[in-house]
Design a protein around this nucleic acid. Structure first.
Length: 508
RNA sequence: GGUCGGGUGGCCGAGCGGCUAGGCUCAGGUCUGCAAAACCUGCUACCGCGGUUCGAAUCCGCGUCCGACCUCCA
């Protein structure tokens, strides 16, 4: 059905044929959010991208164990040396609530958002605080192997030692070892670290720090990066298939993660590293700082995107329109979010959904032979799979679907003839659309979704009644009534589509 | 400053040595009571300058502009 799967590996900076460690099974770890504030829209893009990747791997028939963590301790603001504070602890202090309340609140918000974007849940979603024991054990292993040292109750990873040994440190992020070594002379502050690039894997808690655990070195807490090394090892093993995350995590997070895995067991954690690119807004990185001239900030929260309650956009966009917008670009490319681009995506999304509805209602008259049209359709279907197998090229596969949309509408409009395609091809086409749109791309039809519990049926029943009334008005040439109905519905964002065989309706 | 990735038609966005994606917009047409929708037709682009090649948006060099990471930022 599909061609050989290739993926772009950040480790080698090139596309490689994907071969899982265990036949038919895939272990995939994706860095989840640090839950100290509302989830960032850019983060949503990353998770939607990996959702499509996950869905496609499942579609290919792999048994995938998808692990996506929740970081709920250890992610510092600033550097350890300069009296940095844990992000969650800081938020707890400011809001005067328990750190775990902070975690729960934003984790719930994150989960809600993932549901809104219709992402599949990971197989395991481990939390850093739930794996303190594993992390302490890993610190001990790293110390035992000579890759870490203790200073006043805190433990630091010795990056220079690892860098000197066959240049293992810096491979992923492209750091130059010589530069690292030269920096040694700049050690002017009274840091506990032997070298500026060393990083904390266990941090002694200051007296006022409330998130703290006993350890052989001090009452403290684990360093950021460590949770991912410990939890990926626990659930996927010391060597697994895919590790993913946002591009911004490449350094230092992922580089340090690799260092920790080398340090603890001398193993390379993942065979393939996949990184998603950034989401920009109006050509620039989102930033909450307010522009002094315009008085608005170049940023938007996911919720605002849906309600339209943000000066950067003219109206609200449905989550599925946004998901479609994301699908139109490759996961390794930056994506520029703008109002006009979203409007364009919204229309494209509706066009695809409407075409699918039309397709599913088409029935083949019975006889038809494989003509040129049949061949074209079969080829486009095949190409869509080939594209997805080429480093998950969703935008290209989506383009194939749109080429098929033209065929579908053509058949519906009787511009193209059914006798040019076989009944089997129509069945395949229907199945392909369902598979791609819903299973692989993870879209939902807004017009059908929403209410649930038969709400659509109720609405459709009402609409059929209204359409019938308007139809009789039209037969009586009562254009005033007919147009009033049409305009009133239009104001309610319901569009009537008059066709040869009656009138259809759809939500805008 | 260092490292990395980019500049594609009116806009977004694939392609990454030959076969000139796709979405949106726009213009003309078919259909329609009018319109919308749908369909048909049209709109040939690759930052600049060199080079390699039979042939470059695609490879190389220089320049230029933009972004990311290096530092809190997803």
């Amino acid at each position: 059905m599909s061609a050989q799967l290739t993926v772009h590996n950040s480790l080698t900076r090139q596309k490689e044929v994907f071969n899982p460690i265990n036949e038919g099974r895939i272990g995939m770890y994706v860095c989840g959010p640090t839950v100290y504030s509302d989830v960032h829209l850019g983060n949503c893009r990353t998770f939607v991208s990996f959702d499509v990747i996950y869905r496609y791997l499942l579609h290919l028939g792999y048994k995938v164990r998808y692990v996506r963590n929740i970081t709920d301790v250890g992610h510092l603001e600033g550097d350890v040396d300069t009296g940095a504070e844990d992000k969650i602890a800081k938020k707890a202090r400011i809001e005067q609530i328990e750190p775990m309340e902070v975690v729960q609140k934003y984790m719930n918000g994150f989960h809600d958002m993932m549901t809104v974007f219709n992402t599949l849940k990971p197989s395991i979603e481990p939390r850093a605080t739930g794996h303190i024991v594993e992390q302490i054990e890993m610190v001990q292993q790293i110390i035992d192997n000579g890759y870490a040292y203790e200073k006043n109750g805190s433990v630091y990873f010795d990056t220079i030692k690892l860098a000197k040994e066959d240049g293992r440190y810096g491979k992923l992020s492209g750091r130059i070892i010589e530069d690292l070594l030269v920096e040694t002379r700049d050690l002017k502050n009274q840091s506990e670290k032997n070298h500026p690039s060393d990083f904390a894997i266990w941090i002694k808690a200051a007296p006022e720090h409330i998130m703290r655990w006993n350890s052989p070195w001090s009452v403290g807490f684990p360093g950021w990066h460590l949770e991912c090394s410990a939890m990926s090892t626990k659930y996927l093993g010391t060597n697994f298939d895919i590790h993913g995350g946002g591009n911004d995590l490449k350094f230092p997070h992922h580089e340090n993660e690799i260092a920790q895995n080398y340090g603890s067991c001398d193993c390379e954690p993942a065979n393939y590293w996949l990184h998603t690119n950034m989401l920009l807004m109006n050509g620039k990185k989102m930033s909450k700082s307010v522009d002094p001239e315009t008085g608005i900030s170049n940023s938007i929260a996911p919720g605002e995107l849906f309600t339209g309650d943000n000066p950067n956009i003219s109206k609200g966009y449905s989550p599925m329109a946004v998901r479609f917008f994301m699908l139109q670009s490759h996961y390794r490319s930056t994506l520029d979010l703008t109002d006009v681009a979203l409007t364009a995506a919204e229309k494209g999304y509706r066009r695809l959904m409407d075409a699918n509805k039309i397709l599913q209602d088409l029935s083949h008259p019975g006889k038809g032979s494989a003509g040129e049209l049949d061949k074209e359709i079969q080829e486009l279907i095949q190409l869509a799979y080939t594209d997805m197998s080429d480093d998950f090229n969703a935008p290209k596969a989506l383009a194939r679907l749109f080429e098929l949309v033209t065929k579908i509408n053509g058949l519906k409009a009787e511009h193209l003839a059914f006798d040019q395609i076989t009944p089997e091809t129509l069945v395949t086409l229907k199945a392909t659309f369902t598979t791609f749109i819903f299973d692989i791309f993870g879209l939902l039809d807004d017009a059908l979704a929403g209410g649930g519990d038969g709400e659509y049926e109720t609405l459709d029943g009402l609409m059929q009644m209204v359409i019938k009334i308007r139809q009789s008005a039209r037969q009586n040439k009562d254009w005033g009534t007919a147009d009033t109905i049409r305009d009133t519905l239009k104001a309610l964002k319901i569009q009537l589509k008059d066709g040869k065989d009656g009138t259809a309706w759809s939500k805008e």
